[in-house]
Amino acid sequence: MGIGFHVPKIIRIHGSIAFLFMLAACGGGTEESSGSEDVTSEEDSTAESEELEPVTLVLNWFPKSQMGGFFAAQSEGYFEENGLDIEVQPGGPEVSTLQMVAAGDAEFGLAHADQLLMARNQGMELVALAASLQNSPQAFMYHSDAGLDGFEDMNGRKAYVEAGIPYWEYLKSQYDLSDVEQLTYTGEYTQFMNEPESISQSFVTSEPYFMEREGVDVDTTLISEAGYDPYNVVLFVTRDYLEQNKETVEQFMNAYRPGWDYYEENYEEVNEVIHEANENIALEELKFESEAQHDFVYGGDAEENGVGHMTEERWGELIDQLYELELLDEQVDPEEVYTTEYLSE
């Protein structure tokens, strides 16, 4: 997440409709035959464009670099080439991608892996298709001179944390944080900036940029250093939708990796598109995020196996952690919550 934005306009890509220009016959039979073939070809193109299947992708936040591969696939026409007419809907603090997809208001959604598992625990049969960020950029941010050397050093300090966020429960189970003054995280950083001893949840891909811009020196510690590292920006559908629309899912996934591959080398170009969708996020901020998230997207298992790769081991470890925290009622089989079948090689 990050600093709040106003909801931007929805981006929608439509298949381009060819206009037919009927040319009057003014010559011999050869010219008439050629003209007829041209019209037939244009009619076929029009019919093909009109047959694009409309599907909706709802983002887990307002448009930003963490969705760069999807915007690249959109702007470069990869979805259209695979027969899909994509509507991208922005997320935000009042938007639950999990509920929208579960209710059928969107076919595809984005969420973090732990959110998907907890939604499943509430009866939502959701299936992960790809993990856009191999590792979690979630972190605690603190002033550089705060003297914080480990998670235990959070004791005696104010910590701005979102209520109910799973990694906070995990940290409390691993460390004695009984002396932390937990305050509600709101997405605003005025109090944090004015309290040199305080700590705030953050993403290393965004908040440090804002602090640098404000002249505040900060350091961060990744939550993953404590052993909690769920996949982030996970693409998902409902199990029913997957079983009933395998071809559509395959079409979507055929555009997924090419989109992220294009974004890696052309992120500044695609960031222009993201900025158009969310004018409240500056190009400089998008550039910082794109570069800061590179290893989260393209490193780890993705370096060898491609963007989006997921493993049974990682899902199983997360399931065990959430079960031990009593955030899951049962230790579900990892194969029930994810699939790599549609990740194009």
Rank of each mutant, 00 (worst) to 15 (best):
A103N: 14
E324C: 01
Q134R: 09
E214Y: 08
G77R: 03
N60S: 15
E107N: 02
M141P: 01
E169Q: 13
D85Y: 03
A159Y: 08
F71N: 04
F296A: 05
A131Y: 02
P63C: 09
A130D: 15
S132R: 01
P93Q: 06
E76L: 11
F296K: 00
Y228K: 09
I165V: 15
L84R: 03
R239P: 06
N305C: 02
G27P: 03
P54D: 11
V237I: 11
V161H: 02
Y228T: 12
L343T: 12
E76G: 08
Q89N: 09
E37T: 10
P258Y: 07
D261R: 05
Y142V: 08
V273N: 04
G91W: 00
E336D: 15
V216M: 04
M67Q: 15
S41F: 05
E272R: 14
Y228E: 10
L177Y: 08
L117P: 03
T340V: 15
G147Q: 10
Q244H: 11
A302S: 14
F151C: 14
I3S: 12
P54H: 06
V204K: 00
A72R: 01
N280K: 06
G29Q: 04
L110E: 10
G123V: 06
M100V: 11
P63H: 08
I13H: 09
G68I: 13
H143E: 11
A106T: 07
G109T: 12
Q293H: 06
E225T: 11
S36A: 15
R257P: 12
L177K: 03
K172N: 15
Y175R: 00
G123A: 03
Q122Y: 01
P93E: 09
N60D: 14
A163G: 06
L286Y: 08
L322W: 09
E207D: 10
F192L: 03
V297A: 05
V7T: 09
T340W: 06
S36T: 13
E264T: 01
P208A: 15
E81L: 08
A159H: 05
G164Q: 10
S290N: 07
L52G: 14
G147W: 07
F203K: 11
V332D: 11
E345H: 04
V337W: 03
Q122E: 13
G164E: 14
V88A: 09
Q138I: 14
E125C: 04
G15R: 02
S290A: 15
Y170W: 07
S290G: 11
V237C: 13
S65W: 09
P208M: 14
E243F: 03
L177R: 03
F210C: 08
W61D: 07
A139P: 05
E53I: 15
A113K: 07
V180Y: 00
D149R: 01
V58G: 10
Y256R: 06
V297N: 04
F79A: 09
S36V: 12
S75W: 03
S96R: 00
Y170K: 02
T220W: 13
Q331Y: 01
V88F: 05
M1G: 14
T30G: 07
V218S: 02
W315V: 12
D333F: 06
E313W: 01
F296W: 02
R239F: 07
S206G: 12
E264P: 00
R157H: 10
V237H: 09
V233P: 04
D217R: 00
V218G: 00
L20R: 05
G35Y: 01
E152P: 00
